[in-house]
């Protein structure tokens, strides 16, 4: 652990510093310029700035996030989706049904999406009561249109959202290594859902790799270790840069 790193627990002082982290949510000011951490995690403190990587965090939906949810209910004009957060999302029927005008009297929603279907969506809006409006229209750059709408025949792995930055790595280094060895369609959604379409052997390998990353999130030299496990040469990889997809630019 470097000198600027510190394990913090809720209520532990992180000094008189202002905040620069991933999310405004990990700090609480107790007055007189003293701030405390609100989560268990590792704080990187440098030059009066702090970035806290929490051990666990509750996923808070943000506008523009690419997420994968599944249908848990119907509304007259759309679907209710479980999105792995403390709130449910609403997907309007107009977004999914493109042909003609949507008429709830004539069109049966079950024909398009049924209970339990996986849907790739983007968060269009979140209001102050945390009502989440979803869309399957490609409103953001850098997302494969194939990953929007109904997704079928995928293997599903669920991880904590705090582990995603580590799974993706700095500038996508970790995910590049994984993609080198494991071919097939790999989707990383920002609510912690990882989908994979490919052979079962590759899925098992992916699952074991993710297990190692999750269990050793705070270890240094993890990328090298994973590269070694997968038999990927790191130097070779640097010459052949692959541009990351939009949904992978999580942090």
């Amino acid at each position: 652990m470097s000198r600027n790193e510190k394990i913090v627990i809720p209520g532990e002082s992180i000094g008189n510093i202002y905040y620069r982290g991933r999310d405004e949510g990990f700090i609480y000011r107790i007055g007189k310029g003293i701030s405390v951490s609100t989560h268990l995690g590792v704080a990187h403190i440098s030059n009066k700035k702090v970035d806290i990587i929490p051990y666990k965090n509750v996923y808070t939906p943000k506008v523009g996030d690419y997420i994968v949810g599944f249908v848990v209910g119907y509304a007259p004009n759309g679907w209710v989706l479980e999105i792995g957060s403390y709130v449910k999302g609403f997907l309007p029927a107009n977004d999914v049904i493109r042909e003609g005008k949507f008429d709830p009297k004539k069109i049966d929603l079950e024909k398009y999406l049924r209970l339990g279907d996986l849907v790739g969506t983007i968060i269009q809006d979140v209001n102050k009561f945390s009502n989440v409006l979803l869309t399957t229209k490609n409103i953001r750059e850098g997302i494969n249109p194939k990953h929007l709408g109904k997704l079928s025949n995928y293997f599903i792995i669920k991880v904590h959202t705090t582990k995603l930055p580590r799974i993706i790595g700095k500038k996508g280094s970790m995910i590049k290594i994984i993609k080198r060895r494991i071919d097939g369609d790999l989707i990383i959604a920002q609510n912690g859902v990882i989908l994979y379409k490919g052979s079962y052997e590759n899925y098992k390998l992916l699952r074991s790799i993710l297990q190692v990353i999750i269990q050793h999130t705070y270890a240094s030299g993890l990328t090298g270790k994973i590269a070694e496990m997968l038999g990927v040469n790191l130097n070779e990889l640097n010459d052949n840069e692959v541009s990351g997809k939009g949904e992978e630019k999580n942090e």
């Binding site: 405390v36 609100t38 989560h39």
Partner: peptide, 11 residues
């Protein structure tokens, strides 16, 4: 509560 990742002012 801290292990669950719920924000807390203090233990």
């Amino acid at each position: 509560l801290a292990e669950a990742g719920i924000p807390m002012r203090d233990m």
